[in-house]
């Protein structure tokens, strides 16, 4: 097991309990999707793993996070990056006043083998030819899709073992989303990078994942192979927007009784 979260609890500001006994596993080489509604705690889970909770006054107060068998909860973010976990944050977060190439170089900040950096920049340009055209440009002026590509490219520069992507489809045109998801798959296959993907777009994420977890109010409520999850009537109703008959939900019949989330009781 590459990464395992065992019953972790995260508290913000000493009072707000966000993760309540969250457990999940990520196997080496897999693409694992973590789905859930807004506020379920998906981003918090990623930040707990990558060590980015501290600047937000969050803390893992219970349970443990193991990466390659070592406990990493409440470690410094820079140490966790050195261990091989890299989080691509929600909203892209490229360095706006740095050029594309400088952004890629910051991704390699923790690397010791500095002579291979040039080669890896070319590798990133192979995945994202558009970035090569714009490599001397300031990243703030790239389009949203290009910034997402840059954020993923920056992550690749760190040569991580585990790449965590927080809503890479956020605010992007459907065609671009498809392109980016294709590349995520290629990175997984060709470079052997394990991927933990947080998404709102459940259909898309289930399409490329090997295994998926569904989160609600701070813990995992459902898990399984994507195909099995996609058949689950609850998932179809709440995450894929399909009724039991398989049609798109029609708002004309919206008066019908509401399916309860049975796992909440």
């Amino acid at each position: 097991m590459m990464l395992s979260l065992n019953n972790i609890e995260v508290i913000y500001d000493d009072v707000i309990l966000v993760l309540k006994g969250m457990s999940m596993q990520v196997d080496e080489g897999q693409i694992v999707a973590l789905l859930g509604a807004n506020g379920a705690g998906k981003s918090t889970t990623l930040k707990a793993i990558s060590g980015l909770l501290k600047p937000e006054d969050g803390e893992v107060t219970d349970g443990e996070i193991l990466f390659m068998g070592e406990p990493i909860h409440n470690e410094e973010a820079s140490k966790i990056v050195r261990k091989g976990i890299f989080q691509v944050m929600e909203g892209r977060r490229v360095f706006e006043h740095l050029t594309v190439e400088e952004n890629l170089k910051t991704g390699a900040y923790t690397r010791k083998d500095r002579k291979h950096i040039g080669r890896d920049i070319d590798m990133v340009y192979d995945y994202f030819p558009r970035l090569k055209e714009r490599r001397k440009q300031v990243a703030g002026y790239l389009s949203g899709g290009e910034q997402q590509m840059l954020a993923i490219g920056r992550a690749l520069m760190a040569t991580p073992k585990l790449m965590m992507l927080d809503e890479p489809s956020l605010g992007l045109a459907p065609l671009l989303v498809k392109e980016i998801f294709n590349i995520i798959q290629r990175i997984n296959k060709e470079r052997g990078v394990t991927i933990l993907l947080v998404e709102q777009n459940a259909r898309l994420a289930l399409g490329i994942a090997d295994y998926a977890y569904i989160m609600e109010s701070g813990r995992i409520v459902l898990e399984g192979e994507p195909a099995a999850l996609a058949d689950n009537p609850d998932v179809r109703e709440f995450y894929l927007g399909l009724t039991e008959v398989g049609k798109r939900k029609s708002y004309r019949e919206v008066k019908h009784y509401k399916r309860r989330k049975r796992w909440l009781s």
Partner: peptide, 17 residues
């Protein structure tokens, strides 16, 4: 370059290590 990155976005700078 890291200094300029920190100036731009501290959290993102943390995330790249």
């Amino acid at each position: 370059v890291a200094m300029r990155a920190v100036a731009d976005d501290q959290q993102a700078a943390l995330s790249v290590g």
